[in-house]
Computed example of a mutant assay.
Amino acid sequence: MVDSLGEAHDLGWTLWVACAHGNRDGLKSIRECRQRYRIDMSTLLWTRGRACPLARLEALMRCPRCGSRTVRVSFVPPSGRRHAG
């Protein structure tokens, strides 16, 4: 099982983060933010460290477009390889 950012990087995983704020702000209807970004793993390693737990990344992210902390983090292993986990 892959638990840390360093392990995911070593295995060649790709990280995607998408805003999940939705179309409501309290009782108010707002335009849904649909931003999605591929995050550079090397930069993330420099800022968070190799030991950063993958489970903690969602809490550390914020959408640069709308500022929401409600995000979805997706790790995509390289195609063609099988990872134990």
Score class of each variant (00 low, 15 high):
R34W: 01
A84C: 06
D10A: 15
P64Q: 00
V73L: 11
S79H: 12
R82V: 13
F75H: 00
H83A: 07
K28P: 11
N23T: 04
D40T: 00
R56F: 11
R50C: 11
L5R: 07
A51N: 11
I30S: 04
R82F: 13
R50W: 03
V76F: 14
S74E: 08
R62G: 01
M61R: 02
M61D: 06
S29Q: 14
E32M: 11
L11C: 11
S68L: 02
T47I: 09
F75I: 08
V2H: 13
R34F: 01
M41R: 06
G67E: 10
R81M: 12
R62Q: 07
A59K: 07
T47Y: 03
H83L: 04
G6H: 04
S74L: 11
D3F: 15
T14N: 09
A18Y: 07
R24T: 07
L54R: 03
V73S: 05
A18I: 02
R24N: 09
A84D: 00
I39N: 00
R69F: 02
P77A: 10
D3Q: 15
G67A: 06
T70Q: 06
T70C: 00
V17H: 07
R82S: 12
G67Y: 03
R81S: 14
L11E: 13
T70E: 06
R72H: 08
A55L: 12
T14G: 07
C66L: 00
G6S: 10
A20Q: 06
W16L: 14
M1D: 14
S29M: 13
M61Q: 05
M41K: 02
L57G: 01
A84L: 10
Q35V: 12
I30G: 04
R69M: 08
G85R: 11
R36Q: 12
W16M: 14
R36L: 13
A8D: 00
L27E: 15
C66D: 08
V71P: 00
L45E: 05
R82H: 13
S4Y: 06
L45W: 07
S79Y: 12
D3T: 15
H9R: 05
P53T: 08
E7T: 11
D40G: 09
H9W: 01
V76P: 04
T14A: 10
L60A: 09
Q35R: 14
L57H: 09
R81Y: 13
P64F: 02
A84P: 02
V17G: 03
R31H: 10
T14D: 06
S42F: 12
S42K: 13
Q35K: 13
R81N: 04
I39D: 03
C66K: 03
R48M: 09
C33S: 04
R48L: 06
P77M: 02
I30D: 05
C66Y: 07
A84R: 07
D3E: 15
R31Q: 11
M61N: 03
